[in-house]
Design a protein around this nucleic acid. Structure first.
Lengths: 248, 248
DNA sequence: CACCCCTTTCCATCAGATGGAAAGCCGCTT
DNA sequence: AAGCGGCTTTCCATCTGATGGAAAGGGGTG
């Protein structure tokens, strides 16, 4: 029933929620009232509902947040060093879950979109995650690779070859395979338990080649990996102190 | 029952959840299983549970996220300009909810703590929010102001005078009133519907006076306010596109 | 004024939640 | 080895609470 909320619907009326969830209004009304009482939803003056502050705080306790907080400084460095948009993704089922995305230049206020889910077979970060994932996953994902652009590679044999190459050289690319006019480059982030994320760079085709950015990219990935392994302890203590005090 | 999770307990066993929620294990077991099926919780290999990816994504749809994303660039500017830690907070019941906190210097990796709740009567951001809030709230909050340090002002009359001054000059301060050795300065952020947030700066007592930072602080607050009002439209469209595609 | 779409409440019907108890599983101590 | 304490997981008789159709109330608009 919470699934009624998504990126395009951050504020919904009761009837909308009921319709989108396939529930009778009376039932939805009761549920929504309960969720509001629990502060998981909040009611706005115009009788629309949106995600509440408690839900936000709970979401902050999820693993992606810790990863994001740790990686953010290095993402900033990477953006400054390369001038391109950087993003960090983790494996989430059959998708790459974008944990953070930082826009390229300050003047171009392209917003990032944490929470987005990208396909695994036609994005650079997705390919990295897929290459290092258990074979069972690629078996599943490569059954029917969806086509996004005319450049999307849907040939299973070719994709398998790509994954093998990625494992060997540690770098993945995607040239307009997901969105026209956008190329990307990605490398794995090695944490305490294997590859825990993929760090990637996006650039329009018109910009200078991405090849020269492999160095900074790998350096940033290594730094993030090291921070994840080394910073575990202090980080936990930190959040205990800072978020620990619950309110009514 | 989700309240069992907090900053100090991001991963819990079933029994822990049951105890903390005051529920019999059998009931907790069923609930947790349901939440896992909904991917609101996730089960880790060691049979502990943590907040799931779906919860994280839902949290991203909450108002604080939009505010945070909008304000982040200006916070960065502010940190660079002043060299101090900056933070942004909104009113949440009887607390100030920290939406974002950026550490002062790059070399000093002080972590920020979005999600933390600060008292209203003894922090600079809290005082700003309280000063601009309905009178009913300050009536309530000033009934029994809690003491945090020996510098905490608990005299109701003095606090009321402070709030009046804040309304007049648009700046609030707190000198070690919440934590020893930490002073802060804060100003309101004016959005489309009055004061929607407070922007503050933290500094240790040993550092140069905070007085000189009022200018940059007010400039940043004005910029955030403008971005909030002007950027609403494009922002919505953006997140529609980027987060819209739901998964299974 | 009538229409439409929304929110909110009520209540008879019915289905699903509840939690004690017992089984099964480590890892630890005696 | 045997015993113990903590954990997870399943079962099932009990009964409490969810369900949704219907109707009332509230604002807008043509």
């Amino acid at each position: 029933m919470l699934d009624a909320f998504d990126g395009g619907h951050q504020a919904l009326t009761l009837s909308q929620i009921a319709r989108r969830a396939g529930l009778p209004v009376a039932t939805a009304h009761r549920h929504v009232a309960d969720l509001c009482a629990a502060r998981l939803l909040a009611r706005r003056p115009e009788a629309t509902y949106e995600i509440g502050a408690r839900m936000w705080r709970l979401g902050l306790l999820a693993p992606p947040t810790r990863l994001r907080e740790t990686a953010l400084p290095y993402l900033q460095d990477l953006v400054i060093a390369t001038g391109h948009t950087a993003h960090l993704a983790v494996l989430d089922g059959q998708h790459a879950l974008v944990v953070e995305r930082l826009a390229g230049s300050r003047t171009q206020p392209t917003r990032h979109s944490p929470g987005a889910r990208l396909p695994l077979h036609c994005t650079a970060v997705g390919k990295v995650l897929l290459a290092y994932a258990p074979i069972a996953l690629s078996d599943e994902v490569l059954r029917q690779p969806a086509r996004y652009t005319k450049w999307t590679v849907t040939d299973v044999v070719a994709l398998r070859r790509q994954l093998a190459t990625i494992l060997r050289v540690g770098v993945a690319t995607s040239a307009q395979e997901h969105r026209e006019g956008v190329s990307s480059l990605a490398v794995p982030v090695h944490g305490s338990s294997g590859v825990v994320a993929a760090l990637g760079i996006l650039a329009p085709l018109t910009s200078p080649r991405l090849g020269g950015t492999v160095g900074p990219l790998q350096a940033a990935a290594a730094a993030v990996g090291a921070a994840l392994i080394g910073g575990d302890l202090e980080h936990v203590v930190d959040s205990e102190r800072d978020i620990g005090d619950e309110g009514p």
